[in-house]
Design a protein around this nucleic acid. Structure first.
Lengths: 236, 236
DNA sequence: CGATTCGTTGACTGTACTCAAAATCGGTGG
DNA sequence: CCACCGATTTTGAGTACAGTCAACGAATCG
């Protein structure tokens, strides 16, 4: 019926929640899991809708959003490979989940997943720890959204992305130029930072003319002066 | 040594995490718990400091804050009786916890508390569920901080406080005037909403002159037109 | 090659912040 | 009880930062 063992060639096997399971337990999880791919732009979970699935991200990137009734949107989190998606123990989804790139997920029906959690303490504990971390991150982001200027927001965001997206070999000098791709449009950056597209764009060109960063292409960034960027991110 | 059973007269016995334990388990928790009182204004946990304790709130109210290096502060959460404080499985505290009123806590050493969690699945599951809820709330707050106007923020906040602080008998008519006390100064409201004191004050007087609310004293609020207030909170 | 989305730039506006001063509240002691 | 002090709140005037509206250029895709 099912493919014999979809976990065997799993790319995030050791990083995801399931890393805590032994082979036998994996077999069980395997039997309720299903790999699914979604095209860029697909909404996988609708805020306010029924919370029917949980999943692990295998490849790609997703955004987690909430919106005001009149349509203003805010990205409240980004999901990368090995991250966990969904809300166990909740009947209703609190926010929408949308694919920013083509994504591949390892999907579980929510209720069955809860049963697995119930029977596998180690996995539950891992989920608890991840959730606690996510909570801390969310709260740090609250500070940024509420109290930082556009300047600071953009600088901080670039540093974060540099750490996430650009492990292209540990640059020898701490201040050597580092180039990486932004996997996001200006609009998406704006949604994350609580700004408008125009403001993000202006801040970036301002950083460029200040010589702190370079913008080789519309999706690429070079950090030419990390120290300066950090100074901007931290203070005003 | 210890008082025989401090849980016996616990005011939040059924609402807090410990509600999931039976009498024998409670005894065990009891042996590592300690009641402590803190005066208004006391900082109980410092952001960046060692995460040494966890606790349940018995009485009073606390704030959870993060700050920028240069001192701007943001309240990232409020804690009421029966709420849980602290970060299990984390060596370092991610945010500060400060008493807004005189408070009474039921305090556990963090590592011992973790051991209890490890041995009492029901309690751990409850904590997981609470953490998931807190995460959802934090994310909703992110939307508010980033995307709502001062008008909307203040209106939304008043409605929230009305629900929390003013269960003074379910008012018969849904639109009957409801009066309650704000347990917060304008400054604290500003810290929660990501605004300044002046802006909060202005918004309140504006709502008052519009006839939506009344301000009988500087710490009391009357919601005279809940429907209007809800309309302001939801849309622009 | 046209169409569409995305990004940049410009001019203008408005909301909320800053600085400053008055008014009110709350507590203390004469 | 009232005068006084500090803290909190309100109100005012001016400013600045980021949002809005709009046009244009660049990239992407069918």
């Amino acid at each position: 019926m099912k493919s014999p063992n979809i976990c065997q060639d799993c790319t995030v096997r050791d990083l995801a929640l399931c890393g805590s399971l032994d082979d036998m337990e994996l077999g069980l999880l395997n039997s309720i899991a299903e790999r699914r791919t979604y095209a860029r732009g697909t909404t996988i979970i609708w805020a306010g809708g029924e919370s029917v699935i949980c999943a692990n991200v295998l490849t790609g990137m997703l955004k987690l959003t909430t919106s005001t009734p009149d349509g203003r949107e805010q990205i409240v989190g980004l999901l990368y490979p090995a991250d966990f998606v969904g809300q166990p123990y909740s009947e209703e989804a609190g926010h929408s989940v949308r694919a920013l790139s083509d994504v591949e997920l390892c999907v579980f029906p929510r209720q069955k997943f809860e049963q697995v959690l119930d029977n596998h303490i180690r996995m539950e504990r891992l989920l608890l720890q991840r959730t606690l971390t996510a909570l801390q991150e969310a709260r740090a982001r609250m500070l940024m959204l509420a109290r930082k200027s556009a300047h600071e927001k953009v600088a901080e965001f670039l540093l974060e992305m540099a750490d996430k997206a650009g492990p292209t070999g540990c640059r020898s000098a701490p201040d050597a130029p580092l180039t990486f791709d932004l996997p996001l449009t200006r609009g998406q950056m704006a949604d994350i930072l609580g700004l408008t597209i125009e403001t993000v764009s202006r801040q970036l060109t301002q950083l460029r003319t200040a010589g702190v960063i370079g913008l080789p292409g519309s999706r690429a960034v070079t950090i030419s002066n990390r120290t300066a960027l950090e100074a901007i991110a931290a203070a005003a």
